[in-house]
Amino acid sequence: MSTDKEQLDVDDDFIAVEADDSEQPPVEQAKTNLSKRRTIDNLLEERRLQKQLADYDFDL
């Protein structure tokens, strides 16, 4: 590392990328992942309920 203080050139013509353009793909992926997760949760819940029903003693 240099101990000398150097003058850094700053580019004043920087163009910021809008956040809306960069957020579109992750939002779509998040919706897809959420949809998949809900489907899996529903299947697991259905399987759990079927197991409880099969284990239920109907001869009370």
Rank of each mutant, 00 (worst) to 15 (best):
D11R: 03
E46K: 04
A54V: 00
L34Y: 11
R38P: 00
E46C: 05
S2Y: 04
D13P: 02
D11E: 13
A16Q: 12
A19M: 08
Q7C: 07
L43W: 04
Y56T: 07
A30M: 10
R37T: 12
D9W: 15
M1W: 07
D4V: 08
T3D: 10
D4M: 05
F58K: 08
I40H: 01
I15W: 00
D12R: 08
D59N: 12
Q50W: 02
P25Q: 01
Y56V: 05
A16N: 05
Q7D: 07
I15R: 14
D4E: 15
D12G: 15
T39D: 15
V17T: 10
S35F: 05
K36S: 10
D41Y: 08
Q29N: 12
T39N: 15
S35M: 06
E46L: 05
L49C: 03
D57R: 03
F58E: 11
E6N: 06
L44I: 04
Q7R: 15
M1S: 12
D57K: 10
E46P: 00
L43M: 13
L34W: 09
L53Y: 08
Q7W: 05
D11H: 05
F58Q: 07
D9Q: 15
Q29K: 15
A30Y: 07
R48I: 00
T39S: 14
A30R: 12
S22F: 02
D13A: 13
K36F: 03
Q29M: 08
R37I: 07
A54E: 07
N33Y: 11
L43C: 11
Q29E: 13
P25F: 00
K51E: 04
D13Q: 11
D57W: 06
A54Y: 01
N42D: 14
D57S: 12
D9M: 09
D9V: 15
E45F: 01
D21Q: 13
D59E: 13
M1G: 14
E45L: 03
L60C: 07
D9H: 14
E28K: 08
D21T: 09
V27S: 09
Q24P: 01
E45W: 00
E23D: 10
I40E: 11
A16K: 14
D59M: 06
A19H: 03
D55E: 09
L34T: 14
L60R: 08
L34E: 13
